[in-house]
Design a protein around this nucleic acid. Structure first.
Length: 694
DNA sequence: AACTTGTCAATTTTT
DNA sequence: TTGACAAGTT
């Protein structure tokens, strides 16, 4: 992206020495420490192309990323370099790889007569997990009400460290001990639901390989070369998976190349551990290290600021980005009297670039927490500047869309009690919480799913006539749809079936019935239609995907597939996390204050509802700041306010410590408290006019 | 079962 | 200040 390649067929053309070294690296583990903007994706793709040019079969190469977006982009770049051969490379996210692994193994077992596990199963996202935990919470009682996300975080932690309930001891920590109780039940529940959660997609393959040498060897033989992107974001389970896959006893060395930047590790709260990239040389014997520090993205002063900020972190490999462009303009450090002045300045700043002919797509405003975007959004809308908001609630999180998905999921996997619970009363069938509980009781007595229980209801086992009637009707509805699905021609677009489901279920009528306003009803219907359209398009492109396949993809790739053709016409608003991997000529980071960046919660030493954080929070906040700064190519402005309403209360604020670390020589300080704002000027002018008139 | 009122808490969100 | 959610009411 930074340098254009003159001859696409060449694998090392246009690469610097270090990049070439990484691309040409032969066998054995290699850690490529790739600083921000140093061309890391370029190294991976060129290396793959190089290996293939040397005679490696594309299918013998595995490249793993964290996001679907990264995987797609990488494959696209590869396609430009080597054409159709790019399709044969296994290039996917950890989770998609895990899914493929599990399906392969389960199908295999099926073929060998072991039909205890079918190859179709549900994938639980975070919402499903929480719903599941809430169900469990009803069956046990603790002293105080517990936060399910906190329990979930700990369960996830257990899983990713391959700890089974029996391995874990009570520590006296209320959340740890509660999580332990939940964990055991949670595992049972998922099994009963025929579901895997996101963590399982990575952990289960590891378990299977450990348990069965035949499985292990088969997968170890599969890939000659393994490459990993964003290695700083790996958790323990992912690293273990990589170790197993790369450790082919038939080969003298582990051919694994990992690329990442310890300074950009900002997902520890999701289980990523920086120590994996810091200790890579210890984890993989005879590992080499190559550092890419030449930065092709940013102007010198921006890099100087980034380096100055990150330098204060102790536990890191220790590298400093080198500039390859000019110094660039000074970094603007803006002191605003209050948050409104901050926002006004930001919008004026953006305006001034737009007026000078800059493309809106070249401009981004970044912030630590979504809350900070709100005032900005209002101001931008008032100024008629269009913006693109990264993050926020995803399309697939919308209630009505989730309802449709729940219908589809239940049809595909009738054991999915959670989906059933979600929709059995949508539209209303007179089956509320009480009757759902009744049904759940029957199901657990009979040791079958709730859906199967519905099929077994009769006058003898169910005295509740309303439940019996509408329960059976619901069962008929779903079974009928199941039959329709089974009898669908193989080449039918699953989206058409989904449309049938929407119609048969009465979901649309339900919306008109209960929405508060007409406008809201329209909005929700539109969402469902948009969902169906999106599904249709998606399935057209990926033929022979099938409904099950589509649901799996959606579970793992939740991006609202808004391939925004207008993206370039809009400025970008994003959290610092959301901006990782992106770059913009012009960047403004707002809310550069103590308590926001670094965030208050990272400053508090210990919280009972959060798992302990190894590297003490503040380091990660610093990395977050570093990530933000290094997004900027040409111009960077950092703003803070002296006063800001927090939770309704106006509070005095102080400048972020990170901002203090940037040397004064490269900054230009702008103090807005000195300058009267527009209204003041208008008032002044008005009074001046009056006095002149006199 | 659906609606209302009160209480508590408050980052970040690749899959 | 907003929001989610649980408990209480109709």
């Amino acid at each position: 992206m930074n340098m254009s390649l003159s001859r696409p067929e060449s694998c090392i053309d246009g690469l610097n020495d270090k990049q070439q070294e990484a691309v040409l690296h032969q066998n054995g583990p290699l850690l490529v420490l790739a600083g921000a903007g140093s061309g890391k994706t370029r190294v991976i793709t060129h290396r793959i192309a190089h290996l293939i040019a040397l005679g490696t079969a594309p299918k013998d190469i595995l490249a793993v990323t964290f996001t679907n977006k990264a995987a797609r982009e990488m494959r696209e770049r590869l396609r430009h370099m080597i054409g159709d051969k790019a399709k044969k490379v296994t290039l996917s996210t950890f989770h998609a790889f895990g899914l493929k692994f599990l399906k392969t193994e389960r199908r295999r077992k099926d073929r060998h007569g072991n039909t205890s596990q079918s190859a179709t199963f549900a994938i639980f996202d975070t919402g499903d997990q929480l719903a599941c935990l809430k169900e469990i919470a009803k069956t046990i009682s603790f002293g105080k009400p517990l936060k399910m996300p906190a329990i979930l975080a700990r369960i996830s932690d257990f899983k990713n460290h391959f700890l089974m309930p029996d391995d874990i001891e009570s520590t006296g920590d209320p959340y740890h001990d509660a999580a332990l109780v939940f964990y055991e039940k949670y595992i049972e529940q998922l099994q009963a639901y025929n579901a895997y959660d996101f963590d399982d997609l990575v952990c289960a393959p590891v378990h299977m390989m450990r348990a069965d040498p035949e499985v292990k060897q088969r997968w170890q033989k599969k890939y000659e070369y393994i490459m990993v992107d964003e290695y700083q974001d790996t958790n323990t389970a992912q690293m273990e998976l990589l170790k197993l896959l790369s450790d082919n006893p038939a080969r003298p060395k582990q051919n694994i190349v990992v690329v990442g930047d310890d300074d950009q590790s900002i997902y520890s709260w999701r289980g990523a551990e920086v120590k994996h990239i810091l200790r890579f040389p210890q984890s993989f014997a005879n590992a080499q290290t190559i550092a890419l520090v030449k930065n092709y993205r940013s102007m010198g002063r921006i890099l100087a600021a980034a380096n100055a900020v990150i330098k204060k972190n102790k536990t890191r490999h220790g590298k400093s980005l080198e500039a390859s462009r000019g110094d660039g303009p000074a970094i603007k450090v803006v002191k605003a009297p209050d948050h409104e002045a901050e926002v006004t300045w930001t919008v004026n700043h953006i305006r001034s670039f737009l007026d000078r002919g800059k493309m809106a797509g070249d401009i981004a405003v970044l912030y630590r927490s979504n809350r900070l975007a709100r005032d900005l959004e209002n101001e931008l809308r008032a100024s008629g500047i269009e913006y693109n908001l990264i993050g926020g609630t995803a399309f697939f999180e919308r209630k009505e869309v989730k309802d449709v998905l729940a219908y589809l999921k239940l049809i595909v996997n009738p054991k999915d009690d959670l989906s059933l619970r979600r929709i059995i009363n949508v539209p209303s069938r007179q089956i509320g919480a009480t009757r759902i509980q009744k049904l759940a009781k029957l199901a657990s007595d009979w040791r079958i799913s709730m859906f199967a229980s519905l099929g077994r209801l009769d006058e003898d086992n169910c005295e509740d006539s309303a439940l019996l009637a509408s329960g059976v009707a619901f069962h008929d509805l779903i079974s009928d749809l199941q039959d329709q699905l089974d009898n669908l021609p193989a080449d039918a677009n699953p989206a058409h079936f989904a449309k049938t489901v929407v119609e048969a279920s009465g979901l649309l009528d339900n919306i008109s019935g209960r929405a508060e306003t007409l406008k809201e009803a329209e909005f929700r219907k539109m969402n469902i239609e948009a969902f169906l359209r999106g599904m249709e398009r998606y399935c057209e492109k990926a033929t022979d995907l099938g409904l099950t396949g589509y649901l799996e993809r959606m579970a793992l790739d939740t991006r609202a597939d808004e391939t925004d053709v207008n993206a370039m016409r809009k400025i970008t608003l994003s959290t610092l996390h959301g901006a990782k991997g992106l770059e913009f000529p012009i960047v403004v980071m707002i809310g550069m204050e103590e308590g926001i960046l670094p965030h208050d919660r990272s400053l508090m030493p210990h919280q009972d509802d959060l798992p302990a954080n190894e590297d003490g929070g503040i380091d990660e906040e610093r990395r977050l700041c570093y990530v933000g700064i290094t997004r900027a190519k040409d111009e960077l402005a950092l703003t803070y306010a002296l006063t800001r309403p927090i939770r309704g209360r106006l509070q005095p604020r102080t400048i972020s410590r990170f901002l203090q670390d940037i040397p004064a020589e490269i900054t230009e300080k702008i103090d807005l408290s000195d300058e009267p704002d527009i209204e003041d000027v208008a008032t002044m002018l008005a009074s001046l006019k009056l006095s002149l008139a006199d």
